Amino acid sequence: MAQNVFAPWDDPTETPLIQFKGVTKRFGDFVAIDNLTQDIYAREFFALLGPSGCGKTTMMRMLAGFEAPSEGQILIAGTDMAHVPPNLRAVNMMFQSYALFPHLSVWDNIAFGLKRERHTKDAVSARVEEMLKLTRLEKFAKRKPHQISGGQRQRVALARSLAKAPKLLLLDEPLGALDKKLRQDTQFELMDIQEKTGTTFVIVTHDQEEAMTVASRVAVMDEGRIMQVSTPAQIYEAPNSVYVADFIGDVNIIEGTASPSVNGYEVRWAEGHAPLVAKASQVLREGQRISLAIRPEKVSISAEKPENSVNAIEGKIIDIAYLGNLSTYHVEVAGGIMVKAQTANTRRLSRRELTWEDKVWLNWTDTAAVVLEQ
């Protein structure tokens, strides 16, 4: 049986859980969020991704109620949040520092918010046990935060945030304090917990790998604007600008001028060199300036000139980055342009054919490059 693909944003009958409508946020003369309109749906794991100062944390703080928009509206479940204080929103926020109470046990940290809402002792106990089980912390219930690891503290903070069953959980760089291996493991745990609880998660991160791993959709931000919102695969394979292509993963950018041809477009990129051939979904004018964005794994490298390749350019290996399973070759081509080609290391290092200073040929198909208008 075919599995239903989760894509409420493609369904016109779906009502968004969160709606930003023309939201602007100013701090004095500085515009942190610039006329932003965006919908986020129930059960989504939505990532706000961008460099420091792009406005992603401001967006999250406005959702939580810690900041008010200068202009525009924020709706949650159809209700305008303008005059709803943070404690009355069905929203919880998990901070990067985790903000656990050091003198309370894991059990009491998770129970804290529930006790303040005056639930019965039995109801609190049942909910805490449920959260301990969900986050696999049953064995650590009696310990204090300093007696457990960073990854376990992160799970305590998550359990405490989810205990009150919020409609929406906001996560501000939640894995920033963890080392790389633990961060990767925890990403999958987060996805698993999000799926089990059905809570809508909005995560703020500057780590593109993290956003691409956990999110159903990623919003790439720059200077208070959302540059592109789409699924991780779409953002990687079909970026809508050089900024997005460059921000997500490794990419080669080659600039040139386009001319329509029988097989798509010819792109003149270097004086005295054969034009490159690319397919484009958009219609380009004769002589229009464009950028070709080509992922390194889509570029083949060889010692001999490949036969029948539509795009073959010669260069010299300047650098090699060895990453265990992959090698990235930095190849200088005409005009001093550096192009990266990535290959899987299927053979032992001693049997490598290509090395520094070697003359090589790079080639890729006519559909490998994304054509971006300047």
Rank of each mutant, 00 (worst) to 15 (best):
R348F: 11
A368D: 10
A368Q: 01
N363E: 12
S350A: 13
V339C: 05
L354M: 15
A344I: 10
A368E: 06
V333Q: 04
L362G: 06
R347L: 08
E353R: 11
H330R: 12
G324F: 00
A344R: 02
Q342W: 04
D358M: 12
K340T: 04
S350E: 15
V333K: 00
T328E: 08
D366Y: 05
E353T: 12
M338L: 14
E357G: 04
N325F: 10
I337T: 14
D358V: 06
G335D: 04
A368F: 05
A341M: 09
N363V: 02
N363H: 15
W356T: 04
T328I: 15
W361P: 08
L326N: 13
V339K: 07
H330G: 05
L362D: 08
V370K: 14
V333E: 04
E357D: 15
W361C: 06
S350C: 01
Q342V: 10
A334H: 08
V331M: 07
N345K: 05
Y329I: 00
L362H: 08
N325L: 09
L354G: 07
T343W: 00
T355Q: 13
A334E: 14
T343H: 01
T355A: 06
L323A: 10
V370I: 15
T355R: 12
L326M: 13
L362A: 12
D358R: 05
T328W: 00
L326D: 15
R348L: 14
E353H: 08
N325D: 11
N325T: 08
Q342L: 07
R348I: 09
L354T: 08
G336Q: 12
L354V: 07
I320T: 10
G335N: 11
N363L: 03
Q342F: 04
A344C: 03
T365W: 01
W361Y: 15
V333M: 05
K340Y: 02
V370A: 07
A344K: 03
G324E: 00
L354C: 09
K340G: 02
A341D: 03
A369T: 09
T343G: 03
I337S: 05
E357S: 14
A321L: 09
V360G: 03
V370R: 13
V339G: 06
A341E: 03
V360C: 06
E353S: 13
W361G: 06
M338D: 10
N325R: 13
V331R: 11
I320M: 13
Q342N: 10
A321C: 04
S327V: 01
L362F: 11
G336F: 11
W361D: 06
S327Q: 11
Y322G: 00
I320W: 07
L323C: 03
Y329R: 00
